[in-house]
Design a protein around this nucleic acid. Sequence first.
DNA 1: GTATGGCGTTCGGAATACGTGAACAGATCG
DNA 2: CGATCTGTTCACGTATTCCGAACGCCATAC
Lengths: 259, 259
Amino acid sequence: MTDDGPRPVKTTKTSLALVRAVRDSDGATLSELADRLDLAKSTVHNHLHTLVDEGFLVRDSDTYHVGLQFLPFSEHARNRDPLYSTARQRVYSLAEKTGNEADFIVEENGRAYTLEYAIGESTARGLSESSPFRAGNRFHMHNCASGKAMLALLSDERVREILDRWGLPATTAHTITDESTLFDELETIRRRGYATNDEELIDGYRSIGAAITGPDDAVIGAFSVGGPAYRLAVDGSSTREIAQLLLDEVDSLKSELPP
Amino acid sequence: MTDDGPRPVKTTKTSLALVRAVRDSDGATLSELADRLDLAKSTVHNHLHTLVDEGFLVRDSDTYHVGLQFLPFSEHARNRDPLYSTARQRVYSLAEKTGNEADFIVEENGRAYTLEYAIGESTARGLSESSPFRAGNRFHMHNCASGKAMLALLSDERVREILDRWGLPATTAHTITDESTLFDELETIRRRGYATNDEELIDGYRSIGAAITGPDDAVIGAFSVGGPAYRLAVDGSSTREIAQLLLDEVDSLKSELPP
DNA sequence: GTATGGCGTTCGGAATACGTGAACAGATCG
DNA sequence: CGATCTGTTCACGTATTCCGAACGCCATAC
């Protein structure tokens, strides 16, 4: 576990661990949770009750689920920056134009969060249910195109910080798990202006990503477009076309930004 | 404050109170929060750090904001029931057909949460930024059409429970603040099959709502359509047309449901 | 009909970890 | 350069959390 500053509040941590456990198991009972987190049932009891009272959990007979009280907070965060709304709308046009999946992603705390996700005509609808890019999902930065596009624009120092904290876990055989390989890749991305993901996150899935920077050159987020590997040849013309589309979209978005 | 069971976890409560305060003030500093919640700076310090570490808050120089970590949880809750996705898609068709605002709302813990929101052609886009019906917002059940539609189908006992917990605060001069008046209204709604909201939540805003019930007659959620009062005469033909549209939509949704 | 095991719940007691306040460091302002 | 904001650190005392055992409840088993 990483050192998180002076004196972490343990009680809050266990409460949050409980909520996380409930989400990960898609509904759990008190005893299950007590087992899983190695806590006394009475302790879990008290935590669950307060969390239910606050609306962050819901109790359905004896099973606890994630509550809707998270919504007002997540929507608040999602609309914090007016740019987010603007960018999110463009995701739909990207999906439509390319006929693939498109998303808008933001970095926070060294992890990537999908703020908006859309699918174009040629993609099977079923995918949206399971796609890791679906709005609200959160993943590592090193194995997705938009994540790498953003990393490429951060300082080496910050990148190292992120890698230290979250590591480079592999999800497929193609995932970059070596720090220096990643730094080489970031260099390529900087030169080329866009990033690619060649089955590094999911087998058979490729994507192309481009980062969005603010007036002060700070990274704001990234767009990416992806689809099944057979449709997106790595160095094929379609890749370059999509990359161009992304870069244009980023430019046009930037021109709309206030100073 | 309501009694929330045996032994509430105080520490978790203050952590959550901090997050709430951050959201309500749209970004706050440590000292501000310490003042507001009447806590020692050092206490707030520890809480904020753990919350940042967990991703539920973000620190921007010295101001704290709501973090994106809420997203994975809220989306989980939003997709918990597959019905939610089906219902949410219909909101768009409702908005289009009526040219007004449409939403899908769910009850949890005695409060109403907007899961999906859409605006039709004739509504000014600007509204969506401030509308209380925007996705993720949460409000009382007694002063909105869909809330009342749902209340009408709950047992009197449950309704009373909800009223006791959340009260009947007034937001306009038309808000129902009296318990027996509300029960009379619920009776009317049951007879008529749909609920109306005549400037009870926002001045100049009217809406019509219809509840969705599951195979076991349990209330699942509600649709509503609303707009400026001048466009929706209370007992005019448009109201009845929209009500019919809502009821049809509810029926068609129900026919899609598994046993 | 009774026994057993599962669940959530309650409660008293003990140790921990939370909250406080005072003192420190850095920044910004007059 | 002093005054006054920040946020940070630390030692201390006590309130709070956590535990464990006992309880009630509802199944299912026998």
